[in-house]
């Protein structure tokens, strides 16, 4: 009996259990954190290589915007973590907008789009910035005329034989391209797959704290496998305390709980897409942690899932080290040649 107890005491740090996880590289309990091999796509818009290539051209083409000076990539740039590294986005005629450009990395895994969830699909989301007066300010009739009288026309006819150029097919092609943006080969992924050297001990400790609801409490919203619950939470950001704050999800779902709530973003590739939060108010991950440790700045209508955290400096730095392990090493990205 004594032997068993001693053996249990010694084995506990190696197999520390929290949320039923065993924190050993490759352990079966961790596999839920691996993304599916394929990004789901709707039956009405199956992935094809030609469609993805067309979507890539459209994504990077400034001629889609009203003033011919903006493309999707203006706010979702491959060299800026598929965001723009600005606190809040810059729209039509240099207007500074109210919300940060979210990364579109891994957005194909999400079942709801936009900070306020107003788009149920990537196809719907793809048209949002085009049709927004303050974003790309596209004259849709003019754009369709251009696409129908340019080198784009035969490409559309080849990719969409029965439909050709239309608003719908343009959105489908852009969405198909966005579904190719996947981060699933980070050091954390390697560790979950069984490479025991992929994470440092600090990062493993950070992961334990991340999923522990009594410590970091991070996974309550940043849940497996894409580090988002696709849910909506008011994080108590200082901007919510300002006069006439951005009400976020409340504009779509007028339930008190949703006032000031925004969608949980993925934190995969988080090191590439600073600043953080929907208002870009945290320039570093350290500042993000300071906010969460306080349990939010503005307590009005705070998400019930948020609470004051009790973390030492070492624990905080371990959680940050863990989040830094969620970045897939970037690979060279080839820009498309645009049709004339």
């Amino acid at each position: 009996m004594r032997v068993i107890l001693i053996s249990m005491l010694f084995s506990f740090p190696m197999q520390c259990l929290a949320n039923n996880y065993v924190f050993e590289a490759g352990h079966a309990s961790l596999q839920e954190w691996l993304l599916p091999d394929e990004v789901p796509s709707p039956k009405s818009n199956p992935q094809t290589q030609q469609k993805i290539a067309l979507g890539k051209q459209l994504f990077f083409d400034n001629r889609l915007s009203g003033n011919k000076g903006m493309s999707c990539a203006s706010c979702h740039s491959p060299d800026k973590g598929w965001a723009d590294n600005l606190p809040t986005a810059i729209g039509n005629k240099g207007k500074v907008l109210g919300r940060a450009s979210p990364t579109i990395m891994n957005t194909g895994f999400n079942d709801i789009q936009m900070w306020d969830g107003r788009s149920p699909t990537l196809e719907d989301q793809a048209l949002g910035p085009l049709e927004s007066d303050v974003e790309m300010h596209t004259d849709m009739a003019e754009l369709l005329l251009f696409l129908n009288n340019s080198a784009y026309t035969p490409i559309f006819n080849r990719v969409f034989p029965s439909k050709g150029v239309s608003k719908e097919t343009m959105a489908q092609a852009i969405a198909a391209f966005e579904r190719t943006l996947v981060s699933n080969n980070s050091p954390f992924d390697q560790w979950v797959k069984g490479d025991s050297g992929a994470l440092t001990q600090n990062q493993i400790n950070g992961f334990k704290l991340f999923v522990d609801s009594e410590k970091g409490n991070c996974a309550v919203c940043h849940s497996a496998p894409n580090f988002t619950d696709n849910g909506f939470h008011n994080l108590g950001l200082a901007s919510f305390g300002q006069e006439k704050p951005d009400v976020g999800r409340y504009a779509k779902v007028p339930i008190k709980l949703m006032k000031g709530a925004f969608k949980t973003p993925t934190i995969r590739d988080i090191t590439l897409s600073a600043p953080y939060f929907h208002d870009g108010s945290a320039s570093t991950l350290d500042k993000v942690m300071v906010h969460y440790i306080k349990g939010g700045e503005v307590k009005t209508n705070l998400s019930p899932n948020l609470k004051v955290l009790s973390l030492t400096n070492k624990e905080t730095s371990d959680i940050i080290a863990f989040m830094q392990s969620l970045t897939t090493p970037p690979e060279p990205f080839n820009l498309p040649v645009l049709p004339l």
Binding site: D111, G231, F232, R249, L257, A261, N305
Partner: peptide, 12 residues
Amino acid sequence: GVIDVECAIHPS
């Protein structure tokens, strides 16, 4: 009648 029920926090 027919009533559609959701969780506002988790819209799925």
